[in-house]
Design a protein around this nucleic acid. Structure first.
Length: 842
RNA sequence: GGGCGAGUGGUGAAAUUGGUAUACACGCAGGAUUUAGGAUCCUGUGCCGCAAGGUGUGCGGGUUCGAGUCCCGCCUCGCCCACCA
């Protein structure tokens, strides 16, 4: 009788076994062959679906494989447990965020377990627990001490419907991610981390991260947006009515200082700080103020969508271009952005498309200062700005230089004459970490009337979140509602003082959790420098591409800042990064492909699948679905393939149980084998070789599993029976052992079960990953393809030792070749040993 | 507009340095076994053609004995950034 594959019995059994054995419990004092395998810790949102599962299944397969390769694996797990969704649920349902968070954690932990994903749970961290956020606050203070945390007034995203501030990443196309209301800009006093101080190092060190996908490095580079150019100061022409100006110079940043002799006007952003005072009392005042007001009313979406039409207004003021002493008009236009550069732009319509459009609209003068190669630029015939390289013309002492030569010379000239100089500009802004919401780590700062802004002393940490607050969306931090929390005494002078009511962005929590895993229960310090230095950087980090910029950039910044504070001895947190693709599924409604998500309603619940097929099938299918770095479409039908494969694996062991158990695995000499088992033996070792290289470095799980399937097919083809020869039996036994070992990182439950069934000691992860026997790979003969003019015309079986001349001879004498070269002249014969012979004839 | 990817059967996808295009799997077709299965096994399956053969990796050229792979020019799709000075 054939036994069915009882996944629903054996999977829970082995999961309990792994729990008991504490499978991935790591002893950190042993740093030999260390391998830190980390998956991005999840936000406890509720239930995981198979799209989330990909991340953990990949990570678990890697951890298991590395362990079998003899590495000392650390693979911890935790929870990114602060955040807005829990707070919104609290507002809606009246449940404290802590409760929903912890019950979600329980569910998700159980889900991970049911997938067979194992972690060192002794090191679990939960960012919303005081034993964690105490140290998040401590790190904030460290940054504050070194001037990397500061408070300043800044515009923030405000959702009027939710009555709360939103993070940049929660604003999608100018609208609130959840309620889709248009987001407004408000100006508030906020806490920032000075990440811009690290801009250059964050760019430079990207080049060292050769274990990262090129795509992510490029995205970070673009985000930091390093731009080399010059700062040029224009002198503001004084008012003749005696009114004082707030400033006498207006600086701008430009990457094209070479075009400055073609500058015919200057433009300010509507938000330019000193603008109001500069135009006070002028005839133009009313028009300018109206324009500024209109521009403020226009959302960012509007400002960028009608990108062709330029609007603006003349301020009534003039500035002087110090290069040529020329007086040019000063305009205001919303195509100049306050967020970038200085909020002022030198306009060169002849050599900038935006300035061109603006000058054409408002009939401003245009002047060529760069000529093209054939000197053919002419304002009469030009239809757009000329932005290419060329020769500098009409530019005083710089005339005749190429524009590339002119850039450094002109910047140096400005520097010599103290009105500017070379300047590097970054697009990166400082990191706004204040959040006016409840479910986050309180910022450990106290405001005292006498002492001002005072950091909470280390001994008073953690600053605990108050319990007795309501979560009604009032627009203020809910912490303000707690008098008990807000009213305190000044740590410096002891007088009554008020606490900071904002909490920290949850990205702060996740910027250092990978360090905390190493001393998760340590009550004396945030990070353990010695252990960190031994175990970091993380050898393999695995997570979604959606974190390519924010989390990964913040974590890199934190690592550098902590390094500079002498808390750790390394500057980059993640040596190798793997970003898996998203799992998508067609929607039932419009049959379009969407990322799997609750809101689209195309989620596949792992529970149902596990019930039907078992966790190993889900794992194998998830890994087999396609290249793991690419997005993949989930197909319920295709799960069957993985399911059949495991059933076959199960059957081959159970159908031959007695034979396998009574046979020694030690293979006989390849030379003594008959052809069928010789071929299988070779196939076994070719598989080992290919699968091992598929798993080292790049993670080619899909092809690795395909190879195991091929090996299974070869196993099935070998006719085995009780009266087979010892040689056949032992090769068969060796092959079955190997298949089970090779499959174990992907389908660990069935592998554990079959491993014991095959008579081995339990605990397949302690077994050694199969090693290639070079003798097994050896072949006596090889099949070679015969081509005539590149077209396949036949095949020959030849000795691997055959020399080129004899191969050429044999090929030319082959009937199917003769047929095709008949009547033609053989011009050339190419022999590629072990592959083909190509005959060029005409 | 800028940057980066990618286009291969009905489908998901393979293919070392340029060397038999479509491995592996899904689906489909035919067959075997089964009076029952959450079935299983065998055979076939790029396209045209009865066949010989031809043809075939988004399109058009090129290099080469030989191109999915290299070069030039297009087209389409995806992602990131974007009035970035």
């Amino acid at each position: 009788m054939k036994e069915k594959y009882p996944f629903n019995e054996l999977e829970p059994k082995w999961q309990s076994y792994w729990d008991e054995k504490r499978l991935f419990h790591a002893d950190l004092s042993n740093t030999e062959q260390k391998y830190y395998c980390l998956m991005m810790f999840p936000y406890p949102s509720g239930m995981l679906h198979v799209g989330h599962g990909r991340n953990y299944i990949i990570g678990d397969a890697v951890a298991r494989y590395k362990k079998m390769r003899g590495l000392h694996v650390l693979t911890p797990m935790g929870w990114d447990a602060f955040g807005l969704p829990a707070e919104n649920a609290a507002i809606k349902l009246g449940i404290h965020p802590r409760e929903s968070t912890f019950s979600n954690i329980e569910v998700m932990k159980q889900q991970l377990r049911s997938w067979g994903c194992c972690y060192d749970w002794d090191r679990e961290v939960t960012s919303c627990m005081p034993d964690y956020y105490r140290w998040t606050q401590w790190l904030f203070l460290k940054l504050f001490e070194s001037g990397l945390a500061y408070k300043a007034e800044a515009p923030v995203n405000w959702c009027p419907s939710c009555a709360t501030v939103l993070a940049n990443e929660q604003v999608v196309d100018g609208a609130c991610e959840r309620c889709e209301s248009t987001v407004e800009q408000k100006s508030l006093e906020q806490w920032f981390f000075r990440i811009t101080a690290y801009a250059q190092r964050l760019v430079d060190d990207l080049d060292k991260l050769d274990g990262w996908p090129e795509r992510v490095r490029t995205m970070q580079k673009n985000w930091i947006g390093r731009s080399e150019g010059a700062q040029i100061d224009f002198r503001l022409v004084q008012r003749d009515d005696g009114e004082k100006d707030p400033t006498s110079i207006i600086s701008c940043f430009t990457t094209r200082v070479d075009t400055i002799y073609g500058c015919t006007y200057m433009v300010l952003a509507p938000e330019f700080k000193e603008l109001r005072q500069m135009i006070r009392g002028l005839k133009t005042e009313e028009a300018v103020l109206q324009y500024v007001l209109d521009a403020a009313g226009r959302s960012n979406i509007e400002r960028s969508s009608d990108s062709l039409e330029k609007t603006g207004v003349f301020t009534g003021r003039y500035v002087i271009n110090r290069f040529n002493g020329e007086t040019i008009p000063l305009w205001v236009a919303d195509y100049v952005l306050m967020e970038y550069g200085t909020g002022a732009v030198m306009a060169v319509p002849a050599h900038d498309t935006r300035d061109w459009a603006f000058a054409k609209t408002f009939a401003l003068p245009i002047r060529i200062s760069i000529q093209n190669e054939d000197q053919s630029l002419d304002l009469q015939t030009m239809e757009d700005a000329y932005v290419e390289d060329g020769v500098v013309v009409g530019s005083g002492p710089f005339t005749g230089l190429t524009n590339r030569e002119a850039i450094p010379k002109m910047a140096a000239y400005a520097e010599e004459h103290s009105f500017g100089g070379p300047k590097v500009h970054y697009r990166l802004r400082d990191w706004l970490i204040s959040r006016q919401r409840y479910w986050g780590a309180p910022i450990p700062i106290v405001y005292c009337e006498t002492c001002g802004t005072v950091p909470v002393p280390e001994s008073q940490l953690p600053v605990l979140l108050p319990e007795n607050v309501e979560f009604k969306p009032t627009g203020e931090s809910p912490l303000r509602a707690s008098a008990e929390f807000m009213n305190t005494t000044c740590p410096a002078c002891g007088k009554p003082a008020t606490r900071e009511s904002d909490t920290m962005d949850t990205f702060v929590d996740s910027s250092w959790y990978f360090l905390r895993f190493l001393n998760a229960r340590d009550e004396t310090q945030a990070v353990d420098k010695t252990v960190c230095n031994n175990w970091l950087p993380v050898d393999q980090y695995i997570g979604g591409i959606e974190h390519a910029i924010l989390h990964l950039l913040y974590a890199r910044f934190f690592t550098k800042a902590l390094h500079d504070a002498d808390l750790i001895g390394f500057e980059e947190p993640f040596k190798h990064l793997f970003t898996q693709g998203m799992i998508c599924k067609r929607s039932d409604k419009d049959s379009k492909l969407y990322k799997m998500s609750k809101s689209v309603g195309n989620v596949v619940s792992p529970e149902q699948l596990i019930e039907k097929y078992g966790a190993d099938t889900v794992r194998v299918y998830t890994l087999f679905i396609g290249p793991p770095e690419k997005d993949a479409e989930w197909n319920d039908k295709s799960v069957e393939g993985a399911w059949r494969f495991l059933k076959r694996l199960w059957r081959i062991v159970y159908d031959h149980r007695d034979l396998l158990r009574s046979t020694a695995a030690a293979p006989v000499e390849p030379a003594a084998m008959e052809i069928p088992e010789r071929d299988l033996y070779r196939k076994v070792h070719e598989s080992i070789e290919n699968i091992t290289s598929d798993l080292d470095g790049a993670f080619h799980f899909n092809t690795a599993i395909a190879q195991i399937m091929e090996l299974m097919n070869a196993l099935d083809r070998l006719k085995i029976a009780d009266d087979s020869s010892d040689s056949v039996k032992s090769v068969f036994r060796h092959a079955v052992d190997t298949v089970v070992l090779l499959a174990s990182p992907f389908a660990p439950h069935i592998a554990e079960e079959l491993w014991v069934e095959l008579g081995h000691e339990d605990g397949i992860l302690s077994a050694v990953w199969p090693v290639v026997d070079p003798d097994a790979l050896h072949r006596e003969t090889v099949e070679m393809v015969l081509q005539v003019n590149g077209k396949n015309r036949g095949k020959i079986e030849v000795s691997v030792n055959a020399n080129t001349e004899s191969l050429e001879e044999e090929a030319l004498a082959h009937p199917s070749v003769l047929k095709w070269i008949d009547g033609k002249t053989v011009r050339k014969v190419i022999v590629v040993p072990g592959r083909l012979v190509n005959i060029a004839a005409s």
